[in-house]
Design a binder for these strands. Structure first.
Lengths: 332, 332
DNA sequence: CTGAAAGCGCTAACAC
DNA sequence: GTGTTAGCGCTTTCAG
């Protein structure tokens, strides 16, 4: 059992705790601990499977070498990938990352953030669902990097894309390429700025083409009840409107579930539609029909978040950075 | 900044640390702290945004109320979902879960497990990639629950399915239903027992039907290089063999990537095939053709893991449990 | 080269 | 009802 402690070793080996601490932390040579002592200590550690307590260490040093990662849903391909890459990156830098899903719930998010702060994470990377969390983090003095979502007028480090521009650009080009006019747009409840931006970008792209976006085709489905809600909304619109010629899924959730609905219940309509989605799932490539995808640079986002966090941690400059990365449209 | 401590409050408010500790930990009434004092302390805490240090608390109490979760890949739908549910469950029980991806790498897995033990997690739930990690965990005395993968002859708590039986049952029924004889089987490098069991189940199902499984159709693709490897292996077999009538994807990775390969490069062949996969992705339902899925009860697995862990934590009985859950075949 | 000792923030047995 | 105090396991300054 993990009862070994630095004191015990000290007692058993009749050396002082200092000596052991130095050896464990690679300062043995610096403090010129004799090779013999070093070996004795190392052997003992090896033999007794001793694991130094990070807790105690963190308590003394004030650093825990842990980073919290909060996203709405770790099982979502986008957040999952970003999280995984960040984890890998920071692990290489000596940090352990704690991933958690907030389920898009402000209470939950705040609680988790608090819990992490209490555990003295050195920093937090998050796709914020609520401003309260951010306020809390600022007050607590925790180095924070946000990604994916930018809350209007908040002064906090950010890594992500320009949702408005990305959406505008892609839809603009889409409209030039295809003679589509009646574009169904499917979004989840757009409390988050991200989705509002994407929707606005689309509408403005229509305008830019001298068209007017048909407002009744701007659908919102319920995040908590995606399958059912998709089915109802899509069916409703299809019954009313026979001239839909294209669909814009504004994120990967609506892309999959929306496509699913069409595929299962409105297959005949599907064939004739031009499809485009924000976020690009591997699935987009082999669906029938294929779906053009606006792809976020997940790995780049993860890298930037990691780098930014590390620089925050090391350099302590509290200048706020916004890193905006380009998207890539995969036309199909 | 987070410099407030219980001592500081004590000094400022001229009460003792004990009093504050009791109030924070909900023992105020038990120890009959006066309402007035309680209020003063609570107000102070509120106002100064005081966050008690879990580190210090854990150090004293020996409990950290954290659980580690290790899986090969959090971004994989199966592990991601299981992880997410466990997280939710245990969070309700007052525990925070730390999810991490091991990338199927024994070194990495061990390192992460060690790091977690050093942080004094109260327990670890993992889909083990290597026995070393398990040995380490046993030695360290950390309550451990494994899921998904069972290492032969290891005495450790386990939650999962019977891969052999599930595979056998499904393929057996598949063979009765469909007149298939030439079944391509696609697996990733089956170092893990899980996949070996699934393969064996399939082969025995053939035998059970009085058939002999055509060994050259048992394909193995490279986990690290899935896309390329799938392409090469599948193409190679298809060139040699024109009578393939069905495909068995032995996990969700080969299911998606295998289907992808067929869809992109061998579409014409795909139409005539009967498909079945271990693990059932939402995608299976709307692919063309559809894919029958052997579905693991992800939520049940998560629940059982959580319950088992909690009972380990509370009851301290070290009797080893193996919980085997049934699968469900979604015929399509 | 090594040891003594203070202190990180909190809990809880024991005192008053 | 509230205070005192001894740890929890580690780091690190200061002595020797």
């Amino acid at each position: 059992m993990n009862k070994t402690s630095i004191q015990k070793i000290a007692a058993d080996l009749e050396v002082s705790t200092t000596t052991i601490s130095f050896i464990i932390n690679g300062k043995a040579d610096k403090y010129k601990i004799s090779k013999a002592t070093q070996k004795r200590v190392r052997d003992y550690i090896e033999k007794n499977n001793y694991q130094p307590s990070s807790l105690a260490r963190s308590l003394t040093t004030g650093k825990s070498y842990t980073i919290g990662f909060l996203a709405p849903d770790i099982a979502n391909p986008f957040y999952g990938q970003v999280g995984k890459h960040i984890e890998k990156r920071l692990f290489q830098a000596g940090y352990q990352v704690f991933l958690s899903s907030t389920e898009e719930d402000p209470e939950m998010e705040l609680k988790m953030a608090q819990s992490m702060v209490q555990r003295q994470v050195d920093g937090i990377i998050l796709a914020p669902a609520s401003r309260r969390t951010l306020t809390f983090l600022r007050k607590s003095g925790t180095p924070t990097v946000t990604f994916d979502r930018k809350l209007p007028r908040s002064k906090v480090n950010f890594v992500g894309i320009d949702n408005y521009q990305a959406s505008f650009g892609a839809i603009n080009e889409f409209l030039s390429k295809n003679k589509c006019r009646n574009m169904l747009m499917i979004s989840i409840t757009p409390e988050v700025d991200t989705l509002k931006q994407r929707i606005a970008g689309c509408i403005d792209a229509f305008e830019n083409q001298g068209l007017k976006y048909p407002k009744h085709l701007n659908l919102t489905v319920d995040y908590q009840n995606l399958e059912q809600s998709c089915y109802e909304e899509i069916s409703r619109v299809l019954e009313q409107n026979h001239s839909i010629d294209s669909v814009y899924f504004t994120n990967n959730l609506t892309a999959f579930r929306g496509f699913y609905t069409f595929s299962k219940y409105h297959r005949s309509r599907l064939e004739k539609l031009k499809l485009i989605s924000f976020d690009d799932l591997p699935f987009n490539e082999i669906s029938h029909p294929v779906i053009t995808g606006i792809e976020q640079p997940k790995e780049e986002i993860a890298n930037s978040c990691s780098r930014l966090m590390l620089s925050l941690l090391n350099e302590k400059k509290d200048q706020v950075k916004k890193i905006i990365l380009p998207v890539q449209v995969n036309w199909r």
